[in-house]
Simulated scan of single mutants.
Amino acid sequence: MSHYHPSIPTDPQALAEACRDAMWAGDRACQALGLRVLQVAPGRATVSMTVREDMVNGHAICHGGLIATLADSAFAYACNAYNEVTVASGFSIELLAPAQLGDELTASAREVSRGGRAGLYDIEVCNQQGRVVAQFRGRSHTFKGRSLLPQASG
């Protein structure tokens, strides 16, 4: 019995969107945190999050780890837009300003370098006023030959 799999898009933008959809289907962490993938393109992604009451720490500001999670999520969607399974091999983050309860944070990821199995991505996290809350730099590792999207079977 054969299973129908839609063909894998050849257009880079359509491929990035198909990869986003495949990742989102199993992305329980982003779903639980209420993250929204606003935009994807080859090597780019924009993800947003509203700071909820359960995201605020004892200083009444958004927990830095959750800001890192938002940035890491934009990083993941950006570097997986090529239909090759890619994971983080490391990252660093600078927390530049506090985020408050109710803030709308947006993480914008862009590819700096991608070659072989390694990639480098910069992610900026801003609040709804455009104030930069954090700068994140991620290093990626690609598993060559491992597709994110299911392959057609005969």
Rank of each mutant, 00 (worst) to 15 (best):
L105A: 10
C79I: 02
A71H: 01
H59D: 03
A71N: 05
H59G: 10
A81I: 09
S89R: 14
R52P: 01
A76N: 03
V85K: 11
Q39T: 09
Q100E: 15
A99C: 11
L66Q: 06
N57G: 10
E84R: 15
S89K: 13
V56G: 05
E53M: 00
M49I: 15
C62H: 04
A78S: 12
D54S: 07
Q39A: 12
D54N: 10
T46W: 09
D72A: 01
D72V: 06
A99V: 12
A78C: 06
V85Y: 13
L96G: 15
T86N: 03
Y82V: 10
G65F: 13
A41Q: 02
L70T: 02
A60H: 07
T50F: 00
R44N: 13
E84A: 15
I61C: 06
L66K: 01
A74H: 00
I61F: 09
I93D: 01
T86M: 03
I93M: 07
A71Y: 01
G102M: 12
N80E: 07
Q100D: 15
F75K: 00
G64H: 02
A60K: 12
L105G: 02
F91Y: 15
A71P: 01
Y77D: 05
L70W: 11
L96I: 00
V87N: 08
E84K: 14
N83H: 04
H59Q: 09
A41D: 10
E84M: 14
E104K: 13
D72P: 03
V87F: 09
E84C: 12
S48M: 05
M49Y: 14
A71M: 04
G65I: 05
S89Q: 15
A88E: 03
D72H: 04
